[in-house]
Design a protein around this nucleic acid. Structure first.
Lengths: 231, 231
DNA sequence: GTCTATATACGGATAGAC
DNA sequence: GTCTATCCGTATATAGAC
């Protein structure tokens, strides 16, 4: 599996999930033609991410959004009841795509070292394919409504727990040496986050997502290596 | 060196910080009595960080700040010309303190492995002593005026450069094995950032800054270890 | 479905009394 | 030095034409 193949899979999921969003919000969205809604929602979501990531969601005015999408303010309000609900729709949709793909791919690997690699790569590839959203989620979480904040915390905790479990399993099987699984899981997470938080920097240095993956996997493995194996 | 010793050696008292700000901004601040300015600036800065870190600087209204400080809007505007300048004063002051301390302490260590440890610990201890400001700086940088953004980028690049230099020196002296110094420096930075970005999480788990320092130093050293030394 | 025009509220900033 | 009252721009959101 390389990143190019991975990306195709995600794009398919995005469109499918956009249709789900439409189905879920049929009452709140005034427009009734599915094709129109899906097309315009994608435009609205990506414009929201673009503007918010530049100057902050709170600072993004509906006029900014109107300019960026090429739609009037009146038209925009036909797709969502307000700014809060717009972001709620966006968050729900993206979160469910990422979570589903992440779960699917790590469940496929029973061996801890391989599961670790799969989890690291999948997380990096997901954040590469949807970098603006990952960045947005991290930077804006604390500024959103309480309900959204809770979901963000839960999602963070879940991901970290997945890594901690893999590390613990590997320890028990003797594949990894004895370490503080929880602390290492946190550190791994911070390295994964760095990829999407500092995306521009890595691009300028010509560091690809695959090279980054190799590097941090090497870093983690050096630490997990079973020292002084019985001769 | 541990955090307790660090705090004794370095005077990071808010009072001292505010005296410097007063000296630097004598013309812009309408109030002339130093004791009053220092007392109120302290209140204003800490309220700014508190509110901004909760809901974002942009979302913090002057009325919020008025409520939190117990001062009227009119009084607030006697201490700074506007919201932009308030944050500029705060940033300039904190940035110069942290940079100065960071430089002083790593310059004192000539040996790369020791300089590495000193740089890691100093950065962690600084961010522990001024966590609200470090958090604020990271989260708000992109939402501030262009000039402030540039300074934030330069400061980031500088810190990362310091780590890269230490790693390269250590390689040339044979103290570290051959690695990609720049990429490792980035990764180290991301682990340092995790400390102040996820401060609450670590506090809940009873992970102290000293334990965190030990952990990431062990992590980094495992990777840098010279493998298969000549027998 | 999409537009323009507008109601209404809230934000930053200032004037001038005390 | 600090307060209250207020100006004025801009924000969200809606009404109603096309």
């Amino acid at each position: 599996m390389n990143f190019a193949e991975f990306k195709k899979q995600v794009d398919l999921s995005k469109k499918a999930l956009c249709q789900e969003v439409f189905a879920e919000n049929r009452e709140r969205i005034r427009i009734k033609k599915e094709a129109t809604v899906v097309k315009n929602l994608e435009k609205i979501f990506s414009a929201t991410l673009k503007i918010s990531n530049k100057k902050g969601f709170q600072a993004m005015s509906m006029r900014d959004l109107s300019r960026e999408t090429g739609m009037s303010m009146g038209a925009l309000y036909a797709y969502f009841p307000g700014k809060e609900e717009l972001v709620a729709m966006l968050q729900r949709q993206r979160r469910s795509v990422t979570q589903r793909i992440f779960e699917e791919r790590i469940a496929a690997e029973p061996d801890p070292p391989k599961r670790l690699e799969s989890a690291v790569r999948t997380h990096l590839y997901l954040s590469e394919a949807m970098q603006p959203w990952f960045y947005f989620s991290f930077m804006e979480a604390k500024n959103l409504a309480a309900e959204e904040q809770e979901k963000a915390v839960l999602s963070e905790r879940y991901t970290e727990g997945v890594f901690a479990d893999i590390l613990q399993d590997g320890q028990q099987l003797g594949a990894f040496r004895k370490i503080d699984a929880r602390l290492l899981a946190s550190i791994i997470k911070s390295m994964l986050q760095d990829w999407y938080l500092k995306r521009g920097k890595y691009a300028r240095r010509n560091v690809s997502v695959d090279r980054y993956a190799e590097f941090i996997l090497g870093f983690i493995r050096a630490y997990l290596e079973v020292k002084n194996p019985d001769p």
